[in-house]
Amino acid sequence: MPKLSATAPFIHDGAEVTRSTFGAYCEVGKGARVLNSEFMDYAYCDQYADIANTTLGKFANIAAFTRIGPTDHPYKNASLHHFLYRSSYYWDDAEDDPAFFAARSARRSIIGHDTWIGHGAIIKPEVTIGNGAIVASGAVVTKNVAPYMIVAGVPAVPLRARYPDGIAERMEALAWWDWSHAALKRALADFRALPAEAFLEKYE
């Protein structure tokens, strides 16, 4: 098992990373594809995740075979096919369409801090997943998800809040994801052992 680094992401074999940036202690799983995205500190994706035009918050947990920010096709045109915008693939004297790629890149998905995106979930472009939220395996998320909400289904709908009333707001105020690496280590035993409310009572 790799030991993660504060200075460079751990990129597993077969992963493709293009125009993307990484904070400290990040990891990209085997065979994953990451395009035009930002991984903030401690964010990671498991094997064969496909992430495009996305910002992953600190401590984002992205399971295997997820798709975040899937790119789209020009469905209002006469054809859907990518010969419209990847034209250089087909003709020596044709250029690709830079305006199409710029518009596609601008449709960013935002995944908040301490989130969990389950196996095989799909997060559409321009969707924001709030801090602390959970997206169930296989869900297709087409709308924003409130912080600390658990969603599931196709399309995804809220199931329940992750915490009882008042706990989410207190967790947001504590913002432990901004703690130093050393402070996280000092609190490790409490992260492991204490329920959320007891953790808050100790560290608020």
Rank of each mutant, 00 (worst) to 15 (best):
E38Q: 15
F22S: 10
K58D: 05
D92L: 11
D46R: 14
Y75W: 11
I62K: 13
A64I: 04
W91V: 04
N53Q: 03
Y42C: 15
E27R: 11
N36P: 08
A94F: 04
T54A: 15
N61Q: 15
E27W: 14
T71S: 07
A49L: 06
P98N: 03
R33T: 09
Y85Q: 00
I62W: 13
F100M: 07
A43S: 15
N61K: 10
K76F: 14
N36C: 03
T21S: 15
F100E: 09
L80R: 09
Y85S: 01
A60W: 05
P70D: 10
F83H: 00
F83N: 02
H81Q: 11
F39E: 14
W91M: 04
D96R: 01
G57V: 09
K30V: 10
D41Y: 01
A94H: 03
A99E: 14
F39A: 08
N36Q: 15
T55I: 14
Y75F: 11
A63H: 09
R19P: 03
K76W: 13
Y85E: 03
S88I: 00
F100N: 01
V28C: 12
D41E: 10
W91P: 00
H81L: 11
H73L: 02
S37C: 02
G57W: 05
A78N: 02
F83W: 04
L80S: 09
C45G: 12
A24D: 05
Y48W: 05
M40F: 04
R86Y: 11
D92Y: 07
Y48A: 14
F59H: 15
G29D: 01
V28P: 10
R33P: 02
G31H: 12
H73T: 03
F83R: 00
K76E: 07
H81P: 11
H82D: 08
T71L: 14
N53P: 02
I68L: 15
L80A: 12
H73P: 07
